[in-house]
């Protein structure tokens, strides 16, 4: 039963400014979110995996048993610990140059996360800015934004990435900016349509009527309402960027050797893939695990923040 404090009904003249129903307070949206997050298995598994990989990347110098660049040709192609000639000295074995695979994997996480996260942020800023501006102002601004989106959608991402990175020559910075500029369209499409719907909502009208400037409305009223969606897109985008980075590195056009990158590790293992399959399976599994974890976390965030918008 409810716990409403009983009041006497005043018929005729209720005292002004007396709310009759301030004794029930529903749980706050944040409390609801926490409650939903606790019961969401996918979110918990996804964020746990991501957390482990992030910790690995951050504390790489402390965790990695060897220098990832140190070559030792006398200890080439040693099997991992579960292999026939494996030992606990090199848990995931060594590669064709005698470098410790586990150490390279741990340092490689830095590259994957750095590229994935930074490029997703760049794409998010570009796409969200364009989407909000087009959706809010409409008219010619919107026409220009739609034009940019169409141009972007017409670009073959991998092909452009290949050609540009072959010219720019493998700096990580160049790769990040390139990937950021190639994946902003999803943010723009989603934020533009959301802003269009929100523009006509009465809380935007109220803010305008209170004298708020357009930039204040964009920053303080519209953007906070888009953040959930942007974070969800960012998670999908980050997974895509990590895959593209791996693909580019695999093709020899992304991260340049000897920098440890998961994509590059797969590429380097290609030469011996038939008799030392672990050299591509281990970094491959790492990429797979990270991408899956990011997607699980992204789905989880969506379920937790806006359960009504599911499906």
């Amino acid at each position: 039963m409810s716990t409403i404090v009983t009041r006497t009904a005043v018929s005729g003249a209720a005292p002004a400014g007396r709310s009759d129903d301030f004794d029930t307070l529903a749980p706050s949206p944040k409390a609801l979110m926490r409650k939903r997050a606790k019961g969401h298995v996918g979110l918990i598994i996804g964020t746990t995996i991501i957390a482990v990989i992030v910790l690995m990347a951050v504390f790489a110098p402390l965790i990695a048993p060897y220098d990832p660049y140190a070559q030792d040709l006398s200890r080439r192609l040693i099997d991992p610990v579960w292999g026939a000639k494996g030992s606990w000295d090199n848990i995931f074995g060594t590669d064709a140059l005698g470098r410790d695979v586990l150490s390279r994997l741990i340092y490689g996480a830095r590259i994957s996360l750095l590229v994935g996260f930074t490029a997703a942020v760049i794409a998010g800023i570009i796409g969200t800015a364009l989407g909000i501006l087009g959706g809010y102002y409409g008219g010619k601004v919107d026409a220009f934004v739609v034009y940019l989106i169409n141009v972007k959608l017409a670009l073959p991402v991998i092909l452009v990435a290949l050609s540009v990175s072959s010219i720019s020559g493998g700096s990580i910075m160049a790769l990040i900016i390139l990937l950021g500029f190639l994946t902003w369209d999803r943010y723009a499409v989603v934020t533009r349509s959301m802003t269009q719907q929100m523009r006509e909502r009465e809380f935007i009208m109220s803010s305008k009527a209170a004298g708020a400037s357009n930039s204040r409305i964009l920053w303080r009223e519209i953007l906070p309402n888009l953040m959930n969606q942007v974070i969800i897109i960012a998670s999908l985008d980050m997974a895509l960027i990590i895959l593209v980075e791996a693909a580019l590195s695999f093709l020899g056009l992304g991260i340049r050797p000897p920098t440890p990158s998961w994509g590059l590790m797969v590429s380097e293992g290609r030469a011996v893939m038939f008799f030392k399959p672990y050299l591509i399976m281990i970094p491959g599994a790492a990429i797979f695990l990270l991408v899956i974890a990011i997607n699980m976390a992204g789905d989880g965030i969506r379920d937790v923040t806006s359960p009504e918008g599911r499906g």
Binding site: M205, S206, A209
Partner: peptide, 21 residues
């Protein structure tokens, strides 16, 4: 509209959409 705002203010129809969630 900032000048307007000091003198004229609205109360809209739908209290579910007139407050930023």
């Amino acid at each position: 509209r900032k000048v307007f705002a000091r003198r004229v203010q609205p109360v809209f129809q739908d209290p579910y959409s007139s407050l930023n969630p």
